[in-house]
Amino acid sequence: MIETIRTVAIVGFILVGLFFTLVSATGVIRLPDVYSRAHTASQADTLGAGFALAGVALALGFSTTSFKTVLLLFFIFITNPTAAHAIARAADEEGIKPWTTDDDRTDADLYEEAMADE
């Protein structure tokens, strides 16, 4: 019985993790500019990783090895937002203007701008 619950929980965690990673991938592909992409990269992806790692930790049971997944999670939660910040900051330093709703620039235009800046 407990085994069944655990199995269901593991599968559930991994599915939720997969869902959020799917959102992250969709966001990275769909969103219009680097700033909004950085949102999904740092957030949906971090949460997706969190759920998937929780599933792994559950499967490993209470052991020193499963503690490592907690460590993984801890470091991902510290470093991922920092990486997103670093990228957004780099974009801002280089003068890339954020996309707004009244903005009809396409990816190609943004590319042209990026090349012209260099």
Partner: peptide
């Protein structure tokens, strides 16, 4: 700022002293 970045929809872009520039979705 890391909490802000982790919370979806907001992303810390710059930090100058106490002033935070945040991109919101």
């Amino acid at each position: 700022s890391n909490s802000i970045t982790l919370t979806p929809g907001t992303l810390a872009v710059r930090i100058d002293g106490r002033t935070l520039t945040v991109h919101t979705l």
